[in-house]
């Protein structure tokens, strides 16, 4: 069965390693924090200027001066720090943040990503996404494999305005885990009960299947 958003977040949480500073985008990526192993040390960075983000505050303890990049009220954990926006992006551009997890509207087999604009329909802006994808060494995209109409979002070439070029390394969707390699999307894992044929049918870009593809362990 295809994963839901929580399932995608749980699978991505396995990619978070001990000692990582991690930037989480808005949407599914935000959920990842809930499923990271408790026996490892990880700090979450939010580009509006905080390292060491904790859970949402208890009711009545919200502070307008302590929010994440999604403008949600948050708390901080011991060891946390606050800083200005230029310092925040120095962490990102300077590759001090080890892992970036973000959403996408489209990704292409060459690693291009589009997630900020639908011409004529939605123009909210790129926020920090262009800085993140242009700099991070390790980018995981969390997304649904297809859009609501059933069309693939894993394409030969992105049709929407790009956020970054050749930057996506790994993709976790409701159907599969894939790695972007020079020849296209290499299938690494299937969602439980999802067949390689289903994944092939949902992938417009070149899908590379080498041997038996294991099911995700989540």
């Amino acid at each position: 069965m295809a994963l839901d958003k929580t399932g995608i977040a749980k699978r991505i949480a396995k990619e978070v390693k001990d000692g990582y500073y991690v930037n989480l985008g808005i949407g599914i990526p935000t959920l990842v924090a809930n499923y990271v192993r408790e026996d490892i040390d990880v700090e979450f960075q939010s580009e509006n200027g905080v390292l060491g983000m904790g859970p949402f505050p208890f009711e009545g303890e919200e502070d307008a001066d302590i929010i994440n990049a999604g403008k949600q009220t948050i708390t901080t954990l011991p060891g946390a720090s606050f800083f200005d926006s230029a310092t925040s992006f120095a962490m990102i551009r300077g590759k001090h943040v080890q892992l970036t997890i973000l959403g996408a509207m489209e990704v292409a087999e060459n690693g291009d990503i589009a997630n900020w604009k639908i011409p004529g329909k939605m123009v909210k802006g790129m926020g920090g996404a262009m800085d993140l994808v242009a700099s991070a060494e390790n980018i995981i995209v969390a997304m649904m494999h297809t859009n609501r109409a059933g069309a693939s979002k894993l394409l030969k070439r992105c049709s929407l305005p790009l956020t970054g070029v050749g930057c996506v390394k790994k993709i976790v969707t409701n159907l599969a885990v894939l790695e972007v390699i020079p020849d296209g999307f290499m299938l690494l894992e299937r969602a439980p009960g999802v067949s390689t044929e289903e994944i092939e049918a949902a992938t417009e870009g070149n899908l590379i299947i080498n041997g038996e593809i294991p099911e995700m362990d989540i």
């Binding site: 505050p57 009711e59 929010i67 949600q72």
Partner: peptide, 12 residues
């Protein structure tokens, strides 16, 4: 006023 845009909380 320091308005909060997205009030997110958890229950005790």
């Amino acid at each position: 006023e320091k308005r909060i845009e997205q009030r997110t909380v958890r229950q005790k």
